Amino acid sequence: MNQFLKEVLQDLSQTQKSLNSKYFYDGKGDKLFQEIMDCPEYYPTNCEKEIFRDRTTDLAIALKNGFNTFDLIEMGAGDATKSSYLLKELIDTKVDFTYMPIDISSAMIVHLEQSLPEKIEGLKVHGLNGEYFEMLEKANHISFRKKVVLLLGGNIGNETPENAIEFCRKIRASLQEGDLVLVGFDLKKNPRTILAAYNDAAGFTRDFNLNLLHRINNELDGDFDTEQFEHYPTYDPVTGACKSYLVSRIEQEVRISGQSFHFKENEPIYMEISQKYSVEETEEMAKIAGFKSVAHFFDHKKWFVDTVWQCI
């Protein structure tokens, strides 16, 4: 049984049905996520891009931290749009570094290894295709140099606060004292602004969630009637938890690879979380996970922060 099928059957068998958001990203899902990032309500991408574009020199100084030789590792690099500003600045200031992008997509790693040195002359790229922590371990075997790790895009927000702390502890366990991590956090702000970002008027976020049901139908012999599920996002301004659900419009049976699942009318499938933080909460997380917070970089609205942590 493949991992995708195994997790889907397991997650839909729980009292609180859920689906893992990591499976959103097939070919159609990638395109829909690009549409989400380009829609006017979705602010996080532009906020962080502004930080990397307008604070590049300060970012580079903070990440060099007095060193001129290190490995720059990006977890979940994607197309490296934002980090390219930093890469160019480090090359222009004659820093001796190797860029090590980690991505689950082998095609993306091949693309980065080929395209980035053409765009940024003198850049050394050593791509790492696989899961985050296996690839961090591999990076340690490739080179003993100081490490600077990037975790951008508010990806840490795709975990509950408890799981995010565990995740950061695992990063810390892979690094040495003095190594640095830059983490992007989407900050708490007006609740309507946050909710609109996950419920865009054009319906791209709705389609992005429903696409996972289509994917299950296509790849796992499912028979979801996507017309009978409604996208429902929520945001709790106290806890900072922004969650997405797909709610069954009717009582119905769904079959996946021969296994049957009963849905009551109005029963939700929990799809994903996008956790929002205060600056104080990010500093507390750093402390608990074995880091000290050394610098904060904000966009001009202070809606997003890229915070630099040092391993202690």
Rank of each mutant, 00 (worst) to 15 (best):
V238Y: 12
V149K: 00
L128D: 09
A241P: 15
R192H: 12
Q228V: 09
M135P: 05
E280A: 13
E74S: 03
L180P: 01
A241V: 15
E219C: 10
V8R: 11
L86N: 00
S278A: 11
K17N: 06
F52D: 01
V247R: 06
N217T: 07
K22L: 11
P40Q: 05
L59W: 05
S105R: 07
Y132I: 01
N140L: 03
S105D: 11
V183T: 11
K264V: 01
R169K: 13
D223A: 00
Y277M: 13
T239G: 11
T307K: 12
N209Q: 10
N46K: 14
I109E: 11
S260F: 01
I250E: 05
T205F: 07
E137K: 05
D103S: 00
T57E: 06
G154H: 06
Q16M: 06
R169W: 07
Y43D: 12
F208N: 11
V308M: 03
S257K: 08
A164F: 14
S106A: 12
G27I: 13
F204V: 11
F297L: 03
P40E: 02
Y42I: 12
K88E: 04
I120Q: 00
R255N: 06
I36E: 04
Y245N: 04
A173Y: 11
P101W: 04
H296G: 05
L182H: 02
N199C: 07
F52M: 09
G29Y: 13
I312V: 15
K31A: 13
G203Q: 04
S13H: 10
F167N: 09
A196V: 06
F33P: 04
L32E: 08
I194W: 15
L210Y: 11
Y277G: 13
T234W: 10
P161Y: 15
D54T: 11
